[in-house]
Write a protein that binds this DNA or RNA. Structure first.
Length: 288
DNA sequence: GCCGGTT
DNA sequence: AACCGGCAACGCCAA
DNA sequence: TTGGCG
């Protein structure tokens, strides 16, 4: 591999307990093939932690002086300042250099910024719920999506929840997609009101799984597949197969320092591109 | 991590 | 020369 | 009305 043109200052500085900036750069380079499809050519919000995840942590969505030229930008209609965007894996070491420990892309690409190309549903279990409860919610979500003709792809977030992602052909606009996502989770909650809630305010109540559709706003973002997380132990968000969680007793956990094994396994999302569908109508949802 | 403004 | 704030934004609720 | 929080 060619030498990186990015100079890493303080390569031994620890960003997690035993994971340095150099380790973060090495991870990004090793993950590039899996990671780039989810972060390239999309406006990005990054979470930076120059003094480690226990120090000051801040979001950044616009370019700043001092950033490598490898980190580009994209003009977004109606926004005064251009957003961060990368177009090639060469930019990943530059992200490590600025201690970008999480990557949160828009759900739309530069070629169609106003039409999202996937929906994300964040399944967030109330404290005390078993993994079986969370898993049931995920399979329930998949069932709804499949009955609507949509694909359903699963990932662990690196936190306590799961993301279910439905790839779209980028036709419908943000507002329509978000309304569809809202209607879908509300249909699920109406069907099993004791198991699910869609209300942020009640998210912590009554031992339910919170079905969060709000990730599907234009400037709202969800963590990218393969992004590290600014949390204890350097967990990473990882695509997983549905069969993988069938017998699990807890949310599977992947960490940055042990990610190499995950790269070797077959991509559980290999059919992702082929699964892109137009956003179904709200009428289709009502008829379920 | 780094810039720019303030002390 | 040292220090410090900024680096997203949106809804909701309590103060 | 504002500030903190998720």
């Amino acid at each position: 591999m060619a030498a990186s043109p990015v100079r890493l200052t303080n390569p031994d500085k620890l960003l997690w307990r035993d994971i340095s900036k150099a380790d973060l750069r090495d991870y990004y380079e090793a993950a590039a093939t899996r990671l780039m499809p989810f972060v390239a050519n999309r406006p990005l919000t990054i979470i930076r932690a120059p003094d480690g995840f226990k120090g000051e942590v801040f979001y950044q969505r616009h370019a700043m002086k001092g950033m490598s030229k490898l980190i580009g930008t994209v003009k977004v209609k109606g926004e005064p300042k251009p957003y961060l965007m990368i177009t090639s894996a060469e930019a990943l070491p530059a992200l490590a250099q600025i201690a970008a420990v999480e990557i949160h892309p828009w759900a739309s690409t530069a070629s169609a910024l106003e039409q999202p190309d996937y929906l994300t549903f964040d399944l967030d279990p109330d404290k005390g719920l078993s993994f079986a409860d969370l898993r049931r919610a995920a399979f329930d979500m998949r069932d709804y999506l499949h009955r609507l003709g949509l694909g359903a792809f699963l990932k662990v977030t690196g936190g306590k929840g799961l993301h279910v992602v439905a790839p779209l052909q980028p036709r419908a606009e943000w507002e329509e997609a978000k309304e569809f996502a809202r209607a879908l989770v509300e249909a699920m909650a109406a069907d099993k009101p004791d198991a699910y809630t869609t209300n942020v305010r009640k998210a912590r109540r009554k031992g339910r799984v919170f079905l969060d559709y709000l990730r599907n706003g234009r400037t709202a973002t969800a963590v990218a597949a393969w992004s590290p997380r600014a949390r204890e132990g350097a967990p990473i968000a990882v695509p997983i197969a549905w069969s993988f969680i069938e017998k699990k007793r807890a949310v599977p956990r992947f960490t940055l320092d042990r990610a190499a094994a995950a790269f070797k396994t077959a991509d559980p999302w290999k059919d992702y591109e082929r699964a892109c569908r137009p956003l179904p109508s709200l009428e289709a949802l009502k008829k379920l």
